[in-house]
Amino acid sequence: MQSNPLLGRIAWNTLIALLYLFLLAPIIVVFIISFDTRQYLAFPPESFSFGSYVKVFQNVKFISAFWRSLVIGAIVGFVAVSAGMLLSLSLVRYQFRGKAAVGFLILAPFLVPHIVLAVGIMLVIAPLGLLDSYPGIVLAHLGITIPYTVRTITMSLMAVDTRVEEAALVHGASPRMVFWRITLPLVRPGLIAGGVIAFLISFDEATISLFIVSVKASTLPTEIYHYLEYSTDPQIAALSVILILISVAVVMMVEKLIGLRKAL
């Protein structure tokens, strides 16, 4: 290590580059293979075409699952953000007995394996007849997304100078107006970041979803999972690329709004 600093540096940088390659390998490979059109999985692609993409768009199952995932993700995002906003307000702005317990309850889903939660949620909503339904899957995704929205919104809320809100109050804004005109706009980055993360978690979530939905409310990840049990053709690659692009858009949005590292 101490022989030649230049050589050491090159070796170190090469190592880092290789590790990054490993980390991003599946995404890169999926991208390449998505331009293949054979019925089976093989590498390298023998053609370059958008055939697989066309097939995806003609696949009724995938398209309808895509829309369902989109709707479910949007509802989950909205509800998680609303609940998260209220919870964050109470945690940041109020002192009350049991606050620590509430804080723990909010963070606890981070600590429990998703598969365990999945079985529990399945057991709870099955007797209610909510298995394989929109309300069921939305509920199932709320528990795991609210911690994230609370985190991003709490961060934004703590950064809001309460003097600014007081200034608005003194200058004639009712508490309701202060909320809509001052507090809400100031925490907007946290709201949006929390919302898109919640959306994305719901949109990408497979573990819990697989326990909750089967046919009627199947989401895109569950459809892909079931498809992959039998076939691995490049259609999935094309679909994956679309999913990845959505993730990239979300990542860039979150990074811009509050910084990715703080949000995760």
Partner: peptide, 20 residues
Amino acid sequence: IAVYKRNLGMVFQAYALFPH
């Protein structure tokens, strides 16, 4: 009388201007 109905002006130490 609620704070927002008192019709006062207040200049805060760090100004507390609305940043947005």
